[in-house]
């Protein structure tokens, strides 16, 4: 089964575009659904947020006022939604750079990120796709895929290594503490109650071991597929327990890049 598995450069890029198109479309849709929170009667009102850019030159401030105030920002989100759907269905080389710009503007509007790592991974993949599609050079396309695959690997390994340094992950209490944080709600709290003692210790070490071992995906395509499958289930569990649904789609969109390179290195 695995010996027949093959992925060309253009297939890998196309798969990334489809998945990332869905991811960004869902992100834009979510913000449109809660756009009241961005209005001048909501919490994230531009009249407060704009003060952080007071030190910028006048021209830049005027530009940001024009783009990030409520009405134009809502329009920007609609355009982002349309462009993301187009990326998923009818790709064009200008779509990824446009979505990169809108995603960066969303991040600036929310003082860095709206949804933490999911925004970072989205930006990484949009940079990768923008470069890969900027010319017909296969070398450039492969470089873009390598960048995405490299960042994907770092995302797991750095997370694993930094957890390994923390005593609460090593002693097995971290998962319980994490799941009982008030921002994650009742479902996570119930799971936290079930993860005490040995089960908690096992859970912590499984997470750390999986994240640290993720770099092995580069060595063997079969192992890469297995690790990607485990990673996908890991993100689904996080989405269900912690509400981090954006991570599922953003990370899923990066998987074709790693699979492409794993297959290529094996070949």
């Amino acid at each position: 089964m695995f010996s027949e598995l093959a992925l060309t450069t253009s297939e890998a890029l196309r798969a990334m575009e489809r998945l990332l198109g869905v991811a960004v479309a869902l992100q834009a849709l979510e913000l449109l659904l809660v756009r009241d929170a961005l209005s001048e009667t909501g919490v994230f009102r531009w009249s407060i947020l704009r003060r952080e850019f007071a030190a910028l030159p006048w021209l830049l401030r005027t530009l940001l006022d024009g783009v990030l105030s409520y009405r134009t920002f809502s329009l920007l989100l609609v355009l982002e939604l349309v462009a993301a759907l187009l990326l998923a269905c009818y790709p064009h080389p200008l779509l990824a750079p446009f979505l990169l710009l809108t995603t960066l503007l969303v991040c600036i509007r929310f003082r860095g990120t709206y949804n933490g790592g999911a925004d970072s991974m989205t930006v990484v993949l949009l940079i990768s796709l923008s470069l890969s599609r900027s010319s017909s050079s296969p070398l450039l396309a492969r470089a873009g895929l390598a960048y995405a695959a490299g960042q994907l690997t770092l995302s797991y390994c750095v997370a694993g290594l930094s957890k390994l340094r923390d005593p609460s992950w090593r002693s097995g209490t971290a998962l319980t503490e994490l799941l009982s944080l008030p921002q994650y709600g009742a479902r996570a709290l119930r799971a936290s109650g079930r993860l005490s003692g040995r089960l908690g210790l096992l859970g912590c070490w499984l997470v750390v071991a999986f994240e640290c071992a993720f770099a092995l995906a580069w060595l063997d395509a079969r192992l890469c597929l297995v690790l990607l499958l485990v990673a996908f289930c890991f993100h689904l569990a996080n989405a269900r327990l912690l509400g981090l649904n954006r991570f599922v789609w953003a990370w899923l969109a990066a998987y074709p890049a790693l699979l492409y390179w794993s297959l290529r290195l094996q070949a």
């Binding site: 960066l104 990484v124 960042q151 997370a159 009982s180 944080l181």
Partner: peptide, 25 residues
Amino acid sequence: SRAWVSLRVLLPSWRFFDRPTAPLV
């Protein structure tokens, strides 16, 4: 600096949940 924070999305740290924090209410 605030400028760095606004653009931190370009250089992710990938340190997810490395140190469980005290619940903030």
